[in-house]
Design a protein around this nucleic acid. Structure first.
Lengths: 339, 339
DNA sequence: CTGAAAGCGCTTACAG
DNA sequence: CTGAAAGCGCTTACAG
């Protein structure tokens, strides 16, 4: 059908419409008044040629890419989808595209691979764990607009952050175990050591115990790492030891899966013998047996808000230093409630 | 620290190193011999200035973007993550970045929003359901290299496709129900009407019944749409009717969740009274109660292979017309096996 | 092996 | 409202 010649450029359109390329550019961008008659002529020429402006040329001329880079680690589990959906929705509505890079396990900045920077994005969304603090500082030093997700900036660095409220919700869900279900020996499965969500969740746990004069027993604190198998192994070990417990705050829902599997394998009844509660309210929470009582983290909203802040930063030069999204308890049956 | 002037360009490097910009370009690209001494000088100048070539300028000059566009619909559930991980791994290893666009529900081509095209990508990976056949034809007509995922090309169009084997595996899993577990009245939950995976899975189901002289009962075929709630509603309706059945082939794992929930709510025992089997082996398959017997689809590999084919197409002008990845049965307990 | 120059396809002051 | 011209920052024949 089509001739296989090269795609039409702005010159072709200008020639066909009998105007200058400046004028074509103006009708494409609609940023300057152009007479109605000429607009019509240019538009029909564009249609006839099936003209689409080359992004690279616009980028070069404007020094803008209209692209947001998203840096993610691999280990996001169910975060991935809602987070990206949120980012994409907002970005697209504002005329930005998103370039995604999975950094995998954080690695020392590999100079040869610079996936993102001023050269190909207008700004970056950096998810917790995808970049080292040094990497963040370096990106920031280059003048690239940055927004951090679920991670606060390295000390002294003025980089906006959007995350969720962890501590109060964690305290509340643990207090629910204590007050409503009379649990006294509550296991905490810690998240990854350098993870801020994990840190605040542990603080919430500690506050809850302290508020009810429960002793903080180190034997009740194990590793969960937000991972199913790690959590499973920890609980198996505890069950095999002589440490008794009557509840588990798993740190996140993914770890809750491992806990449930370990308990089930041992024939321990949840919640009759042991209550289990998680954090995140991932899609799997409601299909566990019993359905998981947890804290809902608004991950899609986090994505939206992060994109919104970054675009604001790109456009105006400033954004809100901290956006803390609210979380809420979701009561299902694993804590002992009947719903 | 840094002066807030504009980032260094190739001219700055050339000046500092005392060479022409052509030479700088050559050491950056390493495509033409340059004397060792000059390489050293240029490299140290680049380091000193912290120079990074502007992608937009290279793109303009080379008419290459080194970027692959990925078109996805929204409704991918657990596909999303492994698929993208696969694509990203291969793309990065070959020096490509990936630009992602969620098209949401397929919409008639919206001329104002052209997220991808020759103007900003070197080629496109198109997931089933993210573009209409007309959209695919249009993209193909513009000369953009295309690879389809889980979807074959519109008639007559020469576009490579990578997908998984559906029919034989479906037949096998249904025959497993018939032969090993003596099931006779097996419900099929169909996937979305225009979905090819759904089509072939249904063919496999039909073949299995035919091979064992079981009647194809239209009352046993309901809508599943690969969606939890749709599947749940269908099974609830069947349970309420007088149609009896002793097994369900749910079409995919997501629908299997709905089936299990409906059965459980009614107090029907799985697999004692009714066997349930799915397709995909998503992460949730093994945490269902009982764990789900299903077919494993190698989604991450699909992503890898699709990226590989697209890059091959971009580089050499041709790729394999069809890549059919093998699937395998995963026996857990929902079919009636004891494992 | 190295440099001068044209070209990639746009945008945007500057004039008018 | 419209056009001529410079510039965005690279790559790549073409000479030497």
């Amino acid at each position: 059908m089509k001739k296989d010649s090269k795609p039409p450029s702005i010159d072709d359109v200008a020639r066909l419409a009998g105007v200058s390329i400046s004028t074509v550019s103006r009708v494409v961008n609609r940023n300057v008044p152009v007479s109605a008659e000429i607009v019509t002529r240019v538009e029909s020429a564009m249609r006839e040629l099936n003209y689409v402006p080359r992004q690279a040329a616009r980028n070069l001329a404007t020094r803008r890419t209209h692209t947001i880079g998203v840096l993610l680690s691999d280990m996001l589990g169910d975060f991935f989808q809602p987070l990206l959906t949120g980012i994409e929705t907002v970005a697209r509505a504002s005329g930005f595209e998103i370039l995604i890079s999975l950094t995998g396990v954080v690695r020392p900045q590999d100079q040869r691979l610079r996936p993102f920077g001023l050269h190909n994005t207008d700004g970056l969304l950096i998810f917790a764990g995808s970049l080292t603090p040094a990497g963040i500082e370096q990106a920031h030093a280059s003048g690239l607009p940055l927004v951090l997700i679920h991670q606060s900036p390295p000390t002294g660095l003025d980089v906006p952050c959007v995350t969720v409220e962890n501590k109060a919700a964690s305290r509340k869900i643990v207090e629910h175990l204590i007050v409503t279900h009379q649990r006294r020996r509550i296991v905490l499965l810690r998240g990854p050591a350098d993870n801020e969500d994990a840190h605040w969740r542990e603080m919430g746990y500690r506050e809850a115990l302290a508020a009810h004069n429960l002793e903080l027993d180190p034997r009740l604190m194990g590793v969960g790492d937000f991972e199913r198998e790690v959590a499973r192994a920890t609980i198996e070990k505890m069950l095999a030891s002589d440490t008794s417990f009557d509840a588990v705050f798993t740190g996140d829902d993914e770890a809750a899966v491992g806990v449930m599997l370990a308990l089930e394998a041992r024939g321990v009844k949840v919640p009759e013998e042991i209550s289990v509660v998680g954090f995140d309210d991932q899609r799997l929470a409601e299909i566990l047996h019993p359905p998981l009582t947890t804290v809902r983290a608004p991950t899609e909203q986090v994505g939206q808000e992060a994109a919104r802040q970054l675009i604001k930063l790109i456009r105006t030069g400033s954004a809100d230093p901290l956006t803390l999204l609210p979380t809420e308890l979701v009561f299902r049956r694993s804590c002992g409630c009947r719903v």
